[in-house]
Amino acid sequence: NRMHLVCPMNMSPHVDPHKSGHGIWEEFSHSFTPAVREVVEFAKRIPGFRELSQHDQVSLLKAGTFEVLVVRFASLFEVKDRTVTFLGGKKYSVEALRAMGAGDLQNSMFDFSEKLTGLGLNEEEMSLFTAVVLVSADRSGIENANSVEALQETLIRALRSLITKNHPNESAIFTKLLLKLPDLRSLNNMHSEQLLAFKVHP
């Protein structure tokens, strides 16, 4: 009988107690579905992605959508004022969200967002990094791992040369970016555990 939804992909963390489970789900899908569609549209523009088999495109997107969304929505976690902005536009303090049930995942999201923002990437760098994140997603359901690996290597090489060109005196940036991949994987695992434990009662 949880009365709060602490994921910022909701319009607000407050749940109308008179709303049915189906209604709560429907409202969430209004924000969630367009965000996922945007990830798919982004994936389609990654050079080489559409050449993967359809099965592998779906598998990578299933495994990597959360990680891509974490990167895209990192700015919702504002480290300076310790707030999270929900998709409805309102900000909630870390303490308020903690009282509503947010736990370790929230802390880890702040940590990730702070480190990513600290790298000061421009739009092009962020976009290429996001492409690397998607093709680096879990490969357990992949049919042709060699093709995915080749695409990942190509994108990582492109990211390295872009970062080297733009930040000639900051070679650590590229390494720091690659180290974000395992961080994203553990955020994904934490999120999956919460999702599995989450139930909306009808």
């Binding site: 579905t33 798919v40 389609k44 779906v58 299933k62 999120h191």
Partner: peptide, 27 residues
């Protein structure tokens, strides 16, 4: 659900978004 992605209907959204493009592709 044993698969968190199924819990959100993620696969269905992804497939529709991917297929949409195929349908729109000119002959």
């Amino acid at each position: 659900f044993s698969d968190p992605a199924s819990n959100l209907g993620l696969e269905d959204i992804i497939r529709k978004a991917l297929m949409g493009n195929l349908e729109e592709r000119p002959e």
